[in-house]
């Protein structure tokens, strides 16, 4: 894997754009297609690409397993926490109406927050899953293929 120099360079160039696109999808979800989930997936794809080119070990160095699990948890808790916040605001669970000064804005805020949670969780989860697969030593040698 280490000798595909072109690949590595291209990948290095491509990576920021992928991540940027992911962020776009994340924040633009309110207005067009896309949202937290898609963004998370794209984000994860970025990492995966990185791993494919530089090796999984490199990826693990960048984002250790613990961090991934942590990020997953943060994402999920961000979502669930938003709901808990509305509980504390005296509303039903996941009722965003009081997150801002008026209910409509509150909804927007809420949607943004939870979408962010989804994004983080999905990105981390997908990466974690990929890492899990990729770090597993093959049971069979290449000749057996």
């Amino acid at each position: 894997m280490h000798h595909h120099l072109i690949l590595r360079v291209v990948a290095k160039l491509l990576l920021p754009f992928i991540l940027l696109y992911a962020l776009y999808v994340q924040w633009h979800g309110d207005y067009g297609p896309g949202g937290g989930f898609q963004a998370g997936v794209i984000f994860a794809v970025g990492f995966i690409l990185y791993a494919l080119v530089y090796g999984v070990d490199a990826l693990v160095r960048v984002v250790p397993r613990g961090v991934l699990v942590g990020a997953m948890a943060v994402g999920l808790l961000l979502y669930a926490g938003t709901g808990v916040v509305s509980l504390f605001l005296g509303l039903d669970y996941l009722d965003y109406s009081r997150l801002a000064h008026d209910p409509v804005h509150g909804q927007e805020w809420g949607i943004l927050l939870v979408e962010l949670g989804v994004g983080i969780a999905v990105a981390a989860a997908m990466t974690a899953i990929f890492v899990a697969f990729a770090t597993r030593e093959p049971d069979i040698d290449d000749e057996d293929w």
Partner: peptide
């Protein structure tokens, strides 16, 4: 909600709980 993408609005607000489940 003021969110033009109805899917996003439904996903994150009206049926936000489903999405929590999904996550």
């Amino acid at each position: 909600t003021g969110v033009p993408n109805i899917v996003t609005a439904v996903l994150a607000s009206y049926r936000g709980y489903d999405t929590l489940g999904e996550t």
